[in-house]
Amino acid sequence: MKTNDVMLKTATKVVTFIILMFAVHIFFAGHYTPGGGFIGGLLTTSAIVLLMLAFGIDTVKKILPINYVVLSAVGLLIAIATASASIVFDVPFFTHAYDYFDLPLFGETSLHSALLFDVGVYLVVVGVTMTIIQTIGEDE
C-alpha cells in the first residue's frame, strides 16, 4: 500500500526554511552569545536530513548537487588559510585581526577574522555529517 505523506511534505517545506534561518542566526551569534560554527553546521545538516526523510535521498541529491567530501575539504582549507594568513604578516600562527566597517544595511559592524575560521568549521561539519548520513543511507 502506498502511504500518503502530504502532511509531512507540506510541513517540511515550511519547517526547513525556519531551521535554515535559525542555523544562520546561531552561526552569526557565536561571538557574543551561545552558538557558532559547530552547532550552526549541525542545524543545517538537520534541515537537509529532514528534506531527505520527506522527499528521499535521490530527490535531495538532485536539488543540492554537492559533493560533501569536497565540501569538507574546502572548509578545512578555509580554516587553515585563515589561521595561516598570520604567517604572511610574520606574527604567531592563528593570530586574528578585527576592525569596524560601515556596512550599507547593518550600520557600523565589527568584523573579525575568527568568522572566516568559523565558516571553515561550519563547512567541515556540514560536509562530514552529510557524508556519514549519505554513505549509510545509500548502503544496500
Binding site: 567530501v69 569536497v70 582549507l77 587553515i80 595561516s84 598570520s86 600562527f93
Partner: peptide, 24 residues
C-alpha cells in the same frame, strides 16, 4: 620566520586537504 617550527605540521595538513579534492 617565527613560525618555522609549525611548517612540518602545516605542510602535510594542507597537502592532505588538497589531496581530498581529487581522489581518482
Amino acid at each position: 620566520m617565527s613560525n618555522l617550527l609549525l611548517f612540518p605540521i602545516l605542510i602535510p595538513l594542507i597537502v592532505a586537504t588538497v589531496l581530498m579534492l581529487f581522489p581518482n
